[in-house]
Each structure stands twice: as structure tokens, then as C-alpha cells.
């Protein structure tokens, strides 16, 4: 009630009016500078000597329409592979990170193996892992060999699992030792302390960088096409070879960006929420 009854003083009214004028001023300036820069870019690109040829070979609407179904069906493969690989890599990363924190002499080989894994697969280029798994492993001619797509997915999981493990480990180490002391003082075992006290806090804290790595994974998923499966990039390549026009690549690029936007938006939202929670505490 008092809030509504309050009559602002003369000084406050003058301050409010000034702030209002400042806001209007800022918006006008922003609009002008955006328009100026946009015009400049359009003039520079369309005025370039080779613009007409570039437009014909990269931005042909008819070819884009023809290539779209094939590129879209390729993209569907990317999406399915992304979901499976993201889940697989997150799980693998979490397991490796927890293994690296185990204490006691019994677990020395486990710790060493986990550390060796993260060193190896963070250092090894993804393309080499892909070739080794999709070309080398089938060469063994074992019984019940999984299809190339699964092997390609495994290469992605192995490589990204190494990165995600380090992100998880950073999160685990960021939980303050006093939290461990409190949990242990209640009689919780090491495993219970990890499960109920450390990991929930660690995962929340590193959610933004984890999602960021998933966004990166989304792009690298297309590399399985090197081993044969037809994803969006490969479909665009085939369409390009048929029409001698690069427009299908642009179509695939636009689709990749559209696919990434929701994921990036979620990442930003999670980051913002984490930041707000920390400052609110």
C-alpha cells in the first residue's frame, strides 16, 4: 500500500526523466550503427567483382530445393548419432573421472589406466581414431563385427569421453574438502560421499562446459562419413558432385546451425542459472 501511495520527490522525478532520455538515446544510436554496418557489408559483398559467379555456384535456390531432402535425411543420421554418442561419452567421462579419484593401492592400475586413457585420447586426432576403428578393426575379420556406423560412433565416444572426463574431474576437485569432512563425519563411506555429496555438486558446477563439449561433438559427428555412412555433409558432397554447384554445402551448413541453436540456447541458460545461483548464495 505504501508503495503505491508514495509520491516521488522532485529530485527523483528529474532523475527518472534523465534516465528515460538516456535509454531512448542509446536505442537510437544502436539502431543507426547497426544499419550503417549492415549497409556497408551488403555493398562490399554484392559489389565484389566475382559476386555474380559466387551467387550462382553457392546460393542457387533451385539446387538448394533439390538437395534439401537428401541433406535432411543425412542430418537425421547426424541427430541420432549425436544423441547416442553424447550419452555414451558423458557416461564414459563420468566413470573415468570417478576412477581417477579412487584411492588406495588396490586401485593403482585402475587409476593409471584411466589417466593413460585421458592422455591418449585427448592427444590423438579424432580422424586417426576414426580410421583405426572403422578401417582397422573390421580388418581383423572377427565374428559378429558391428557395422561401421557403430564403430565410428565408438571412435567419437572414446575421443570425447577423454575430454568430458577431465571436465568431470575438475568439477569433482572443485567441491570443497569441508564438504567431504562433513560427509565422512556423518559416517558415510567414500562411495556414499561421492554418490550423494560430491558428484551432485560437481555435475551441477560443470554442466555449462559439459554442454559446450556436446555442441562441439555435434559438428564432429559428421566425420563418421569419412568411413562410409551418408550423413548431411556427405549427402551435400554427393549432391555437389552431381550438379557441379556448391549450394548443397551451404544448405547443410545452415541446417547444422539451426540444429545447434537450441543446444547452444540450453547451454547459455544453464550457464546463466549456475552463475545466478552462485551469486545468490
Amino acid at each position: 500500500m505504501t508503495l503505491l501511495d508514495h509520491v516521488p520527490s522532485e529530485a527523483q522525478r528529474r532523475r527518472s526523466a534523465y534516465r528515460h532520455r538516456q535509454t531512448v538515446h542509446s536505442v537510437v544510436v544502436a539502431a543507426c550503427s547497426t544499419a550503417a554496418l549492415g549497409t556497408l557489408l551488403v555493398v562490399a559483398v554484392t559489389g565484389a567483382p566475382g559476386w555474380d559467379r559466387v551467387r550462382q555456384s553457392f546460393l542457387d535456390p533451385e539446387i538448394a530445393r533439390d538437395a534439401l531432402p537428401a541433406v535432411l535425411s543425412g542430418l537425421w543420421l547426424n541427430v541420432r548419432l549425436l544423441v547416442c554418442c553424447a550419452v555414451g561419452a558423458l557416461l564414459l567421462g563420468l566413470v573415468i573421472a570417478v576412477l581417477r579419484t579412487l584411492r588406495g593401492p588396490v586401485f593403482f592400475p585402475v587409476r593409471a589406466l584411466a589417466a593413460g586413457y585421458t592422455y591418449t585420447f585427448r592427444g590423438l586426432p579424432l580422424i586417426i581414431v576414426l580410421y583405426l576403428l572403422t578401417l582397422g578393426v573390421p580388418g581383423l575379420r572377427l565374428q559378429g563385427m558391428p557395422p561401421v556406423l557403430v564403430l565410428g560412433g565408438a571412435a567419437l565416444v572414446l575421443t570425447y569421453g577423454g575430454y568430458l572426463a577431465e571436465v568431470f574431474r575438475a568439477g569433482i576437485e572443485s567441491v570443497h574438502p569441508s564438504q567431504l569432512a562433513a560427509a565422512r563425519s556423518l559416517g558415510l563411506t567414500y562411495r556414499q560421499t561421492m554418490r550423494h555429496v560430491v558428484l551432485p555438486q560437481a555435475v551441477r558446477r560443470v554442466a555449462p562446459p559439459l554442454l559446450n563439449d556436446v555442441v562441439a561433438l555435434q559438428k564432429d559427428v559428421g566425420l563418421v562419413s569419412l568411413a562410409g555412412p551418408i550423413d548431411a555433409v556427405r549427402a551435400a558432397q554427393i549432391a555437389t558432385a552431381q550438379s557441379f554447384n556448391y549450394t548443397p554445402y551451404v544448405v547443410a551448413g545452415v541446417l547444422f546451425v539451426l540444429l545447434a541453436i537450441p543446444l547452444i540456447a540450453v547451454t547459455d541458460w544453464v550457464t546463466l542459472r549456475a552463475a545466478r545461483r552462485q551469486s545468490g548464495g
Binding site: S178, Q179, A181, A182, A183, S185, V197, P200, Q201, R204
Partner: peptide, 13 residues
């Protein structure tokens, strides 16, 4: 044994 710390050490999550 029950232990209580100077900085409370409650689990924030």
C-alpha cells in the same frame, strides 16, 4: 560421534 563445524558445512544441494 557427531561433529559440528565452524562453517556449518551443510550440503548446499
Amino acid at each position: 560421534i557427531g561433529m559440528v563445524f565452524q562453517a556449518y558445512n551443510l550440503f548446499p544441494h
